[in-house]
Design a protein around this nucleic acid. Structure first.
Lengths: 66, 66
DNA sequence: GAACAATGCAAAATATAGTTGACATAATAT
DNA sequence: ATATTATGTCAACTATATTTTGCATTGTTC
């Protein structure tokens, strides 16, 4: 499966999982699980991730097709 | 506070809360709470809501400003 | 004005998002 | 080679999303 767009946006900023975790106030493990696609984050967390990564919700999480 | 865009999209389709709840497979109460802004739904539920309402995540949940 | 559909609200239960602490490993730096 | 940083994973815990049941209220509509 494709690399998560959260991970792409994170490494584009040269941030570690821990850097991102601190920026959105969750743990490193939570970021790891989200990037691994093993998780279903809440809307609030998605919004915080989008903001600190300089992306919109759609850019990080939307999938066009069916 | 402004009316939730989920509610606007729902009434635009002439659906009851229960209609929408069935379409995304949650309870009527969950829809009511989301529309009332008293809730923090999961990403999966947001995606299902967007799809059945014919909107994107950003159209329903993104806020530009700060 | 009784009957019914749509919504709001609330308490108790269940499922799962997110934490904490710890250990293992890979990569890189020194 | 060893110290350090970044990541994966796991078990046990806590917080909260979501369910279930039930009752109250507000329109309709007949």
């Amino acid at each position: 499966m494709a690399v998560s767009r959260v991970k792409l946006a994170r490494v584009a900023k040269d941030w570690s999982q821990e850097d991102l975790a601190k920026a959105v106030e969750v743990t490193r493990q939570t970021i790891g699980l989200i990037e691994a696609g093993k998780y279903n984050p809440t809307l609030n967390l998605c919004l915080r991730l989008a903001k600190v990564l300089g992306k919109t919700l759609d850019e990080l999480f939307w999938e066009e097709d069916k």
